[in-house]
Design a protein around this nucleic acid. Sequence first.
RNA 1: GCCGGAGUGGCGGAAUGGUAGACGCAGCGGACUCAAAAUCCGCCGGGCCUCGGGUCUGUGGGGGUUCGAGUCCCCCCUCCGGCACCA
Length: 826
Amino acid sequence: MPYDFERVERKWQQYWAENRVFDVERDPGKPKFYCLEMFPYPSGALHMGHLRNYSIGDLLSRYLWMKGWNVLHPMGFDAFGLPAENAALKYGVHPKKWTWDNIEHMTAQLKSMGCSYDWRRRVETCAPEYYRWTQWIFLLFLKNGLAYRKHAPVNWCESCQTVLANEQVIDGGHCWRCGSVVTKRKLEQWFLNITRYAQELLDSLDSLAGWPERVKLMQRNWIGRSEGVRLTFPVEGLEKGLETFTTRFDTIYGVTFLALAPEHPMVEEFARLSPNGEQIRAFVKETVQKSEIERTAVGGEKKGVDTGFKAINPVNGEKVPIWVSNYILIEYGTGAIMGVPAHDQRDFEFARKYGIPIRLVIQPEVGALEPETMSHAFEEEGIQCNSAGFDGLPTRESIPRMARWAEETGIGKREVNYRLRDWLISRQRYWGAPIPVVYCEKCGIVPIPEEQLPVLLPDVQVLPGGKSPLPETPEWVNTTCPACGGPARRETDTMDTFICSSWYFLRFTSPWTQDGPFRGEDVNYWMPVDQYIGGIEHACLHLIYARFFTKVLSDLGYVEVREPFTNLLTQGMVIKDGSKMSKSKGNVVDPDEIIRKYGADTARLFILFAAPPDKDLDWSEKGVEGAHRFLKRVWRLVEEGGARLKEAPRRRIPLAEIEERSRRELKRRIHSTIENVGRDIEKERQFNTAVARLMELSNDLSDFVPETDQDWILYREGIETLLLCLSPFTPHLCEELWEMLGNRGCLATAAWPEVEADCLEAESVTIVMQVNGKVREKIELPAGLSEEQLKERVLSHEAVRKRLEGKEILKVIAVLDRLVNVVVKG
RNA sequence: GCCGGAGUGGCGGAAUGGUAGACGCAGCGGACUCAAAAUCCGCCGGGCCUCGGGUCUGUGGGGGUUCGAGUCCCCCCUCCGGCACCA
């Protein structure tokens, strides 16, 4: 009977479903393990990246299950998002129908992969039963002062017709979704106060020992903490002063100008009062129009215009000109800087261009710089000069000392600034969770009362051109104010889909709950996620947002954990012909086709074998065939064993009772395989080598020719061990063969085999004999010899003696059970 | 520019400071076959030689530590990733 993977896979998928094998409940008697893969967007069909992600998660879940853990392994869909609206425009199908059809199709695909999910727990973020609680959480944020509206310059993607959060603008000014150039618009929008958590998000990264350094570093960079001083420069002729932030207060005596961002609120005032107001306005207009990329390009030309106003340096009363310049960002610090051209490269370039004086206040420890001859700013540490009472101090001391002095004299205040901005969460889109507030003429912004949730998304048609239909749906927009009963308008923006995915891992713990987002006893039993698996592209998106949500919900008493994901595995991309699979490159391989042609087991095995999980994986059809060949060999192994194998007693013969040497070696190989595969999966997270070890065992079993009854018992032990250890990788095949061997019960719930410890100790070892570090002879010796015995045995060995003839032995190094290195002269 | 990560056969990739190249793919030789496919057996980093053995060399390049370095340290090169006028 040939290996009919199609029949086998259908049979076992049905068996697992009918017997509810993967349903899981809280069980205080067992250690819990929460294994989670990032849920997919229901784009239509699974791609290879998904297949890889879910193969890894399924392998781990099944393995841990066998090891006796109570494993929560759920799956769901991140189902709100723009592609549904685009599909509606393109095919005329409603986003809701498109999305739900895709969800059902992709669920079927996941089942055809043989994934061990508890399907009762499936969540879809676009379902009212889910987004009801997304809205509830939003209101919780609002109630606690963590959600607010603000008028601000925001990122706008023309193609997506919506605003974007900072994290969603990538590659120097492009939309994370569609890649279009992002522009700035001044709009009033909803924000979440993530910056309030900046310090904790940064600090607790240190507690995430199970996260890749790379991801933690990316988050640290993204949060971008810097310590400095905030100080105000009085402006000559005005009541108001100008606030600036600097990390180099030690250069305060080197300030020769001030510069404002074009968007700075004081700019218009200067323009109004200045004789060259028109020039200032023209410059601002020109600059603000430019895209983020043009404006923030490094080495881009720094331009500016003098306002004619002077600021007064509070430390020495000196008057310096106030400029408006394109290189100052309104979003960071105060949107105004103190210009120190001698010690800041950007200020240096600007000052040189406009003939602004350069004053050195720090000299290098060796040599002396002259402002006239400097080719670039001196940004390193040195010795303070031209700085009144601070002259002579090294930078290391002057920074803290001068900052303290600033506070003592009231000139400035120490402050920490972050690059991280508050999270802009409103989207001018239809297919998202409505923001549950109304605008009432009398009462202002009024939250929808909890008991009236969810605010249902109305079933309306999307508009040509892609604009949201919500503002054009008066019967939905016009409503009554929950507070005063008067007329009110609904908020027509929906929430960023990253909100929906910031708490789904909590919902999985009790997805059927109707009186809260989740149940406390469930969430506190299952959380945190012990292993999270997904792509690195979410390092500064989903993974920061989810951490933020967890901390807020923890502070408000809804969950106990402060970090959602204990261990993070960032899987590599699937590559073909040197680049990431993509429709535009035409190098896409369809998972369905692979499963149809070779079966899910083959696909899973290849994916897990071809590369370590965190590295990119080169897709190779030949490699897939290789994986398939291996599975066929395993099949034949059982089939060719025939009745003799099936009838062999299922019993383990202790190592000590096996007389023949080669049989003992096989026994050892069986047990070292269990040990090593377990370690590779559990500790090393290196699945490719685990597969290699299973292939070795299979090769050894193929070579073995059982003769005696005892041989057949041993052979059966070997084959059953292979099936057990292979089953988390290729579950269907192993189940079938397990059954063919006459076993009862399914492998998915079988226990991982026990290692017989005495089998891990070798009987004999190959000792390498080196002369001056070079391998010369290999000698088979009994294991466990002492250092003295080892030297003795090696040095008296005939071939070794021959080699050492006429040479003076200086030193002999022996490494137990490994090698002997003889250091000689001559 | 700054910060990470990585460079190992024809290819994907293995190697607690101790036999470099496990396992697989491709290739070559052979068996089976009328033939092919499938399957099975053998070989498979490079050079040289008196070749079923020997010898030198070999993990991006150059130095160092060590009895011994793919692995540790220093310098350099290349590729990939992140951030990038963040004051």
